[in-house]
């Protein structure tokens, strides 16, 4: 085996010095690491702790702020979506049909509230209301139809 390895040239005393060189490097590497940590945590202990604490505070505040902001935005967006879908349902409803519906309701409400009244008076009031509602519909008046219909 010795004959086979001797094919390559090696500097004199290389193997005598190699362990010392390697150990020197290991120790210097260790001391570099130690000095770094010492500088960080011993010599600059006070400053480092203040800096690290403020960084931590900033980061945590940022996280909380972002989290809250995102949740608000989400709520707003959900509400917007809900509103738009709610109103979209009424896009197809015609104003006239709404008034007709109201007129029908007022007639039923009136009959329900005046059970003690005679059928003649009910019919006359119903007819009056119908006349008023028709008038308002034709003239596009802003007066509350419900109020008139209930006779308030």
């Amino acid at each position: 085996m010795e004959d086979k390895t001797n094919m390559f040239k090696v500097p004199d005393d290389y193997f005598d010095n190699l362990p010392t060189i390697i150990q020197g490097k290991c120790i210097s590497k260790l001391s570099v690491e130690k000095t770094f940590f010492r500088k960080l945590f011993v010599n600059y202990n006070y400053k480092v702790s203040i800096i690290s604490l403020s960084i931590l505070l900033l980061v945590s505040t940022g996280i909380i702020f972002l989290r809250n902001n995102f949740s608000d935005i989400n709520i707003q967006r959900t509400e917007q979506i809900a509103d738009s879908s709610y109103f979209n349902e009424f896009d197809d409803v015609d104003e006239n049909s709404l008034i007709d519906l109201l007129a029908e309701n007022t007639s039923t409400t009136t009959t329900g509230n005046n059970n003690l009244q005679t059928s003649a008076s009910i019919n006359s009031k119903y007819n009056d209301n119908e006349v008023i509602v028709n008038y308002l519909t034709e003239n596009d008046n802003d007066i509350d139809i419900q109020e008139i219909a209930t006779g308030k």
Partner: peptide, 24 residues
């Protein structure tokens, strides 16, 4: 212990590496 370990294996490891990379 590490010094002894290096002394024990340095030649074997060196020649193994030297044959792969050729340059000292």
């Amino acid at each position: 212990a590490f010094n002894l370990l290096v002394r024990k294996y340095q030649k074997q490891i060196y020649w193994h590496v030297r044959r792969i990379v050729i340059v000292h």
